[in-house]
Design a protein around this nucleic acid. Structure first.
Lengths: 343, 343
DNA sequence: TTGTAATCTGCAATCGTCTGCACTGGTACA
DNA sequence: TGTACCAGTGCAGACGATTGCAGATTACAA
C-alpha cells in the first residue's frame, strides 16, 4: 500500500543543519531569527514542498479549526444549500468542515456527534433528525460545554443558539394566500406531530384561518409519515372527503409533489378542482406542471448565518449568551393555487 | 468563550493512582493486565465519559482515518448522491469524511487539496471542476504517493483509479432512442469542449448517428457554457435553424430543462414539434411537463464504489495498480421524446 | 583583556496516545 | 539460598509543531 510521506520540519532541519525550533520560527516569520537563515529555510521549505501537519498543530493548541455538521440527509436540496453556505463561510474564516448525515435516525445522530466530538471539532452545527424526540445527547453536549448551534430542525427548550425560519409566518402567508383565493375548506397535510416544523406550520395555518373567522376543523388536518405511500394515501383520502376541500397546504414540497402527481393520475385538475401549495421551494416545484405555489426558504443564507454565529462565539466575537436568529420566508405564488373568478 | 474540556487518560490515571500506560492498555483490552485493574479502569472511564482524542491517535499512528472528498458543487443532486454513498460506506469502515466543494473553480480545487492533505487525510476522492484543464496538482499528489481516486469528472491520462459512467454508451443509448423515434436531424448541445463528459457524450452521439448512416454535421453541434443565458441562446438558435431539427439531445438535464422552458414560452410543442432528451436523471426531469427523457446515473452507487475501492487500496485489500470502474447507465424514456406516428 | 549587551539558536517540555522495554514482587524448583 | 520465571505495572520515547528559557556567539565599550 502506498503511503504518502509528508515532509516534516525535522527533515528540513536535518538538511540545513539547524534545529527544528529554528525551522518553526522561520516559517512563522519570527523577528528573532537572522534574516539570512530565515530566507534559506523558507526557500528550502518551498523547495521540499513542506506542508504543516494540521493534526500536530491542532493537538498542540487544542483547537482543530474544524467544525462538525450534522444534517438529516445531504441529498435534500435544502440541506445541500445549507451545507454549501456553511462550507463557504467556514472556509473564509480558515475552518474546515466535517459533514455527517443522520439519515433521519436518532441513533445515527448520536453516533455522528460522538465521532465528531472525538475528532475534536471546535464546534457543531446540527439539524435534528425526524426521529429525534429525546434530547439527552444535546444536553450532554451542553453540559460538557461543547459549542453548538441548532438550525432549521431545532429543539426549542435547550439554551443554545438557534437559527430557524419563521415557520409560523410562512405557513400563515401561504394559508392567507389560499384564503384570498376564495378557498375556505383548507386541508393541512402535516408530518409527524412531534416534529418542530409540523407544529410551527400548523400554528401559522390556524392563525390565518382564525383571522378569517374559520374555526379549526380537526378533520381537515391530515398526518403523513412523509413516505411516498403515505403521501399517496393522504392524497386519495382528501379526494374522498365530503364536501371536498377547496385547497390543500402540504407541510413540505415533496409531499405536495406526491399529492399533485397522484391527483393528476386520478384526473383531478389543479388548481381548478383543488388548489395546492407546499413549503420549501424545492427546484422541482418550479418546473412541475402546474408549477407549485410554495414558500421559499433561503438555505444557503441559513447555513451562512449559523456558521458565522458559531464562529463568532468560538472566536469570542459574539456573546456566549444563546441567541435565536429567525429568517423570514417568502411566498412564491404559482399556478397551483391560482385564483379563478368562476369556480 | 466556552471551551469544552475533554477527559484524558491522564485524568483517569490520576484518579485511580495508576499510570497512563495502564489506562491505555486497559482500554485496548490488553491481556497483560490484571483483570481486576482492567475492570476498574474501564468502569471509571465510562463513568467519567472518556472519549479518546482522535487527533492524538492519528498523530501517533500517522493515519487519520479520514477521507477527503472534493466535488464541484454539493447542491447538485447528482453529487449529493455520490457524497451520500461515500459517507455511508466510509462510516461503515470506520472512516470519517471531510467534504469540500470547488465551486467549479480550479483554484478552489487546488486550495481544497492543499487543506485536505495538510489535514492528513488518508486518501482523496475527487471529481474535477469544470475549469480544470491543467492537471499538475493531480500529478503532484501522484508523485507524493498520496492515494486518490477520481470519479465522474476524471482526467483520463493519469495512472490512478477512476470510477466513471459509460458516457459513450449512455449518449449512444439516448441518441439511438431518438433515431428510433424517426428523428434524423438531431442536435447535440454540448458543454465546454474540453470537458470530459462533453467529449464522451459526443462520441456516443456520433456513434449512434454513424450506425444509421448519418454523417456528422458540425452545424448540429451546439456549445453552451452551461449558464442559463447561454442555454436560452442555444434554445433560440435551434428554433431558427433551417431546416429545423427533429430532436435535441442535451449533455446534461439542466440544459434540457432550460431549453424546454424556453421553448414552452415560445409556444413550441414537445415532443410534437421537436423531441428532447437530457442526461443525468435529475429529480426535476421526472416532474417537468412533459417529463424529460434522460439517462439515469446512479450517483449513490458511484460514491459507494469509489470509496470502497479507495479504502480497499488503503487497507491493502486491493492491488495498488490503478483500475477503471465503468458503471452502466440506463435510458429513461419519457414523454419529451415520445414517438408519434404522424409527425 | 575583560565585561556586557545584543543577537541568534537550541534544548526541553507540551499536547494525548501508544508500546518496547525494564522493573518489581512473588512463586516454584534445584 | 540461589536461580529462573511469570504476571503485572511503569518509564520513556515517539508522533509533529510550538515556545519559554537558557546557552552560544558576536560586537562593542570600558
Amino acid at each position: 500500500m502506498k503511503r504518502g510521506h509528508q515532509i516534516t520540519m525535522k527533515e528540513i532541519a536535518k538538511k540545513l543543519g539547524v534545529s527544528v525550533s529554528t525551522i518553526s520560527r522561520a516559517l512563522k516569520d519570527s523577528p528573532e531569527l537572522h534574516p539570512e537563515t530565515k530566507r534559506k529555510i523558507v526557500e528550502m521549505a518551498k523547495e521540499m514542498n513542506y506542508q504543516p501537519n494540521l493534526l500536530a498543530q491542532s493537538l498542540r493548541i487544542s483547537r482543530s479549526k474544524t467544525l462538525g455538521v450534522i444534517v438529516p440527509e445531504i441529498t435534500s436540496h435544502f440541506f445541500a444549500s445549507c451545507i454549501s453556505g456553511i462550507q463557504d463561510y467556514a472556509n473564509k474564516r480558515g475552518y474546515n468542515v466535517m459533514i455527517c448525515q443522520s439519515n433521519e435516525s436518532i441513533d445515527q445522530e448520536k453516533a455522528n456527534i460522538r465521532t465528531l466530538v472525538s475528532s475534536q471539532v471546535d464546534g457543531l452545527l446540527i439539524s435534528l433528525s425526524r426521529e429525534t424526540n429525546k434530547f439527552d445527547h444535546l444536553y450532554e453536549l451542553y453540559n460538557r460545554e461543547i459549542n453548538f448551534v441548532l438550525f432549521d430542525r431545532v429543539h426549542e427548550e435547550i439554551p443554545v443558539s438557534k437559527v430557524t425560519f419563521n415557520d409560523v409566518g410562512g405557513a400563515y402567508q401561504v394559508t392567507h394566500h389560499l384564503l384570498e383565493g376564495n378557498n375556505r375548506r383548507i386541508v393541512y397535510v402535516s408530518g409527524p406531530e412531534d416534529l418542530y416544523i409540523s407544529k410551527k406550520r400548523k400554528e401559522g395555518y390556524l392563525k390565518a384561518l382564525a383571522e378569517y373567522g374559520i374555526e379549526n376543523d380537526p378533520l381537515l388536518i391530515k398526518i403523513s409519515d412523509l413516505t411516498l405511500e403515505d403521501n399517496v394515501r393522504v392524497a386519495r383520502e382528501i379526494t374522498e372527503m365530503d364536501p371536498r376541500p377547496d385547497a390543500v397546504f402540504c407541510m413540505i414540497d415533496p409531499v405536495a409533489v406526491d399529492v399533485l402527481t397522484e391527483w393528476k393520475s386520478m384526473g383531478i385538475k389543479i388548481p381548478e378542482d383543488m388548489a395546492l401549495a407546499g413549503f420549501t421551494n424545492n427546484p422541482t416545484s418550479a418546473v412541475i406542471e402546474p408549477p407549485l405555489t410554495t414558500v421559499a426558504q433561503p438555505g444557503y443564507e441559513m447555513g451562512k448565518l449559523a456558521v458565522t454565529h458559531l464562529l463568532d462565539q468560538l472566536d469570542g466575537l459574539a456573546s456566549e449568551d444563546p441567541i435565536s436568529i429567525v429568517l423570514e420566508t417568502t411566498l412564491v405564488p404559482r399556478k397551483s393555487s391560482q385564483h379563478f373568478q368562476v369556480k
